[in-house]
């Protein structure tokens, strides 16, 4: 564990808490993509199957369980409890355009052709693009609530911090996972446009709106 990985994990946890708080406090999931959230639940489910097969640390197990539980909690709030507030008209990104190619790629490019390893690879690839329906939704409506933009900033920062963690681990531990690194870089690049808008608008106290 190093400081980049720890702050990355904290940013990830903070993002999830921010989203749950936004939905709970406003009693609404308006502006949140149910498709991105469904894919995040799929990401955690397929990645953390190793909870059953091997133990790494109490920290690792606890965080994995929190991530899985919170992702299904978010789906419960969006699709059951506050279903009426779900903005499905603007959530039109086609999930199969991401899930199908990602599933194919995880069969072709993986560390080991075994079920758990293919599912792990699938989750890494899917996570890298799972935010696209959310970003697409913001581009359609042209704006995001401030709390939603804080959520996205925390969520995007997490993988950016992981890149620093991988640089650190490469130099100090000789650890290098090409699949995670490439997918993590793709994931971070997808946020760049959002990061720019967030820093130039939200940090100056304005709402996140897209240039016309």
């Amino acid at each position: 564990m190093n400081v980049f990985r720890l702050t990355g994990d904290i940013a990830h946890l903070l993002a999830i808490i921010l989203l749950l708080m936004k939905i709970w406090k406003t009693r609404s999931c308006a502006g949140v993509s149910g498709k991105s959230q469904m894919m995040f639940a799929l990401v955690f489910t397929t990645r953390y199957l190793d909870l059953i097969t091997n133990f790494i640390s109490l920290y690792n197990t606890t965080m994995k369980m929190i991530f899985i539980a919170s992702s299904y909690g978010t789906l419960y709030l969006m699709f059951l409890k506050f279903r009426a507030t779900y903005d499905s008209n603007h959530d039109t990104f086609r999930m199969e355009f991401l899930v199908v190619p990602v599933a194919g790629l995880s069969f072709l490019v993986n560390h080991d052709f075994s079920p758990l390893e293919i599912l792990w690879t699938f989750s890494i690839y899917l996570e890298s693009v799972a935010i696209l329906p959310q970003l697409f939704m913001i581009s359609k409506t042209g704006e995001a609530e401030t709390i939603t933009s804080h959520y996205l900033f925390a969520l995007g920062s997490y993988r950016a911090l992981y890149i620093l963690n991988w640089v650190y681990r490469f130099y100090f531990e000789g650890f290098f996972d090409l699949i995670a690194v490439v997918a993590g870089c793709v994931q971070t690049v997808l946020y760049c446009d959002f990061f720019y808008l967030y820093i130039t608008k939200v940090w100056k106290g304005k709402k996140l709106t897209l240039p016309a």
């Binding site: 990645r47 790494i56 080991d112 390893e117 792990w120 995670a180």
Partner: peptide, 10 residues
């Protein structure tokens, strides 16, 4: 050596 990878990251 081929062995089951332990993914220790989240």
């Amino acid at each position: 050596s081929p062995h089951i990878r332990r993914h220790d990251e989240l």
